[in-house]
Design a protein around this nucleic acid. Structure first.
Length: 470
DNA sequence: TGACGTTTTGT
DNA sequence: CAAAACGTC
């Protein structure tokens, strides 16, 4: 081999912390050159992200598992800390790479960063290759007949399903690495991030992700469409933190789903498509990240008082299902999707607080936070986004009756209501004083009175919203 | 992945 | 007459 063929290829891992079905890693191994598997603790991202330390610990677990995976195929992971561009500039000097491979990210700030990095490498005459990996179909691939992006889900979903499917990429059997200095895997403590989430939903890593996915298929997928709405049972896949960090490829999920016979996959598949729909919305309409898609709604008389916001965040609104949800979020870094919709509807349409406030709080707490899905979900909940629907205002009391009929979920997270009889559990403030004393739940004392009246607040929001529609 | 009031249906 | 279906916001 001549000198040139020994020049390594950098595989830059970002949101694809796995060795199986990884487009960039797989394509790099086809070149039969040494590889530098690289992860950067990007100080620009770390400083701007409000994520709880638990998310950084989760990331560290993912990186640990990735390192072990790479070791099994003869390699290892190299980590650096710093501004991405500077880290790359230094690495170019140290390692004289022949190419850099990475998987594409569709967030505006990530695209800016990647453009700058690409320019840097090209200015040194180094090959740059990026790959589709974070989604099954990219924002540029799912377009109308006029080559326009979709802003309505159903036609998007139909177009998405009509596209040809890429098979998963095989896991490399063996790689050779070109060793460089590494700072080791940094967790929340190392990065000076405070951990406030006491019981994170799950541990990170490709190994865990595979187990969770296989168990979901085995035990829960068949009943997904009905059980996914019940927050007290594990009816959903709970894969979202793994998908966010790329511990498992959505390509693999899609292939596994299509291979299933006699299990209905539509409901679950649609959730994957919703995720890609919002990736597409963010990519084509990046302004949604700073303002409502329907701009007029930003002029509604939003409540800027912080007392309600604090009570919502901490789960002390006096509305049992809302409080249970916010406490699940605060304690585990995850929240059941049905309850996400309920707490989001409550913040925006009962407390009349702008969805940006809720989006920001979710970003700070959720292990599974993806900018596109979070933004899309919040704008959906606030009825300010794409995919127009009639104004929907959730009634937390009815939602609880329907989806937590035994009150199991509420009692798990709101121990103050432990002994409240079921017929009062969803509206404990309607108990008589006698009943309150009998079950040891004193409204205004051991559990708050609801901070808003659902009916009044709904009518106020509906009126303001409808006025803008004209 | 609405709520709610009204109409129709099934027993 | 309860439950399902429908229509409207």
């Amino acid at each position: 081999m001549n000198q040139h063929s020994q020049q390594p290829i950098i595989v830059w891992f970002r949101r694809d912390l796995r060795i199986s079905d990884n487009a960039a890693l797989y394509h790099a191994t086809l070149r039969a050159r040494p590889i530098i598997p690289l992860f950067i603790f990007d100080t620009d991202i770390i400083n701007s992200l409000s994520s709880d330390g638990a998310a950084f610990n989760f990331q560290a677990e993912c990186l640990q598992d990735l390192n072990e995976g790479l070791q099994r195929i003869g390699g290892r992971l190299f980590c650096r800390k710093g501004k991405a561009l500077q880290v790359h500039a230094k690495l170019i000097q140290e390692a004289s790479p022949s190419a850099i491979f990475y998987n594409r990210d569709y967030e505006p700030h990530a695209r800016d960063r990647d453009r700058a990095v690409e320019q840097l490498y090209r200015s040194h005459g180094i090959e740059v290759q990026s790959f589709k990996d974070h989604v099954v179909h990219e924002p540029e691939e799912v377009l109308t007949l006029q080559n326009r992006p979709y802003s309505i889900f159903t036609p998007y979903m139909k177009a998405w399903k009509s596209l040809p499917v890429q098979s998963p990429f095989p896991t490399p059997a063996k790689i050779t690495v070109a060793p460089v200095e590494s700072c080791g895997i940094l967790n929340a403590h190392d990065l000076h991030k405070q951990v406030t989430i006491p019981r994170p939903l799950c541990r990170g890593g490709e190994t865990q992700a595979k187990k969770v996915w296989e168990q979901f298929i085995r035990t829960s997928l068949a009943s997904y469409s009905s059980n996914r709405n019940i927050p007290s049972i594990k009816g959903t896949s709970r894969l979202s933190p793994y998908i966010r960090f790329g511990c498992i490829a959505v390509r693999t999920l899609y292939r596994d789903l299509l291979a299933l016979k006699s299990i209905p996959i539509e409901a679950f598949l649609n959730e994957l498509i919703w995720r890609e729909f919002y990736q597409s919305v963010m990519y084509h309409f990046p302004d949604v990240l700073t303002a409502s898609y329907k701009r007029a709604f930003d002029t509604l008389p939003w409540n800027t008082d912080t007392e309600f916001l604090h009570r919502w965040r901490s789960g002390h609104t006096g509305v049992p299902l809302v409080d249970a949800g916010m406490r699940e979020l605060n304690q585990t870094g995850w929240l059941h999707n049905r309850v996400r919709m309920v707490v989001a509807s409550f913040l925006t349409k009962q407390l009349f607080i702008h969805w940006k406030q809720g989006e920001e709080y979710f970003e700070s707490k959720l292990l599974d936070i993806e900018t596109a899905s979070n933004n899309g979900g919040w704008q959906w909940a606030a009825s300010t986004g794409v995919d127009p629907k009639p104004l929907r205002i959730f009634n937390p009391e009815l939602q609880a009756q329907k989806f937590d009929p035994e009150g199991v979920y509420i009692k798990t997270y709101v121990p103050e209501l432990q002994n409240v009889p079921l017929q009062h559990l969803f509206a404990p403030h309607r108990m008589s004083l006698d009943e309150q004393h009998r079950c040891g739940c004193i409204i205004g004392k051991t559990y708050p009175r609801p901070i808003v009246d659902h009916r009044l607040a709904s009518e106020k929001f509906k009126k303001a919203y409808m006025q803008l529609l004209r």
